[in-house]
């Protein structure tokens, strides 16, 4: 996918995912669940994934958050659903690289590149990464466990 969103499109994507978050629901006990919150911001989010044979069969989330955390988590769930755990790890890694302003593979990030400017508001980096960090921990936990 060619990714050259202009500013207008980026704003629209963020607002769309904020107003209509995707995969915002609670998974049952077959899902791996992780709770993400932080002392320094308001976001409190549960990230959930159903992993079968190293494939993310389903990814969902619920909780409260600002526009940036809501939209980025929503985009994350769409992006990672039905990916293998390996692919998911690659995407998450590149997302973090983008946020840190390091060279990254934009192709694999699809809509998630709308958060490329997050470092302009350093206080919100936590919000733009909360869902991705949650998934990262689920995947790491899965590997260890």
């Amino acid at each position: 996918m060619p990714i050259l969103f202009n500013e207008m499109m980026m704003r629209e994507i963020i607002m769309d995912h904020y107003s209509h978050p995707r995969n915002r629901r609670e998974g049952d006990e077959t899902y791996k669940t992780i709770y993400m919150d932080s002392e320094s911001c308001v976001d409190k989010i549960y990230v959930q994934a159903k992993i079968e044979n190293d494939v993310l069969k389903d990814v969902c989330w619920h909780g409260v958050g600002c526009a940036i955390s809501t939209a980025s988590t929503s985009i994350m769930t769409e992006l990672l659903k039905n990916k293998t755990t390996k692919e998911a790890e690659y995407i998450i890694d590149n997302y973090f690289k983008m946020i840190r302003e390091e060279p990254y593979d934009s192709e694999c990030l699809d809509e998630a590149i709308v958060f490329m400017n997050t470092s302009k508001q350093a206080g919100r980096i936590k919000c733009a990464t909360i869902g991705f960090r949650g998934m990262d921990e689920i995947l790491k936990g899965d590997k260890n466990g």
């Binding site: 308001v42 958050g65 526009a67 919100r124």
Partner: peptide, 10 residues
């Protein structure tokens, strides 16, 4: 959302 408002002010 409060956090978004505070970021705008920032």
């Amino acid at each position: 959302f409060a956090q978004d408002g505070a970021t705008l002010l920032n």
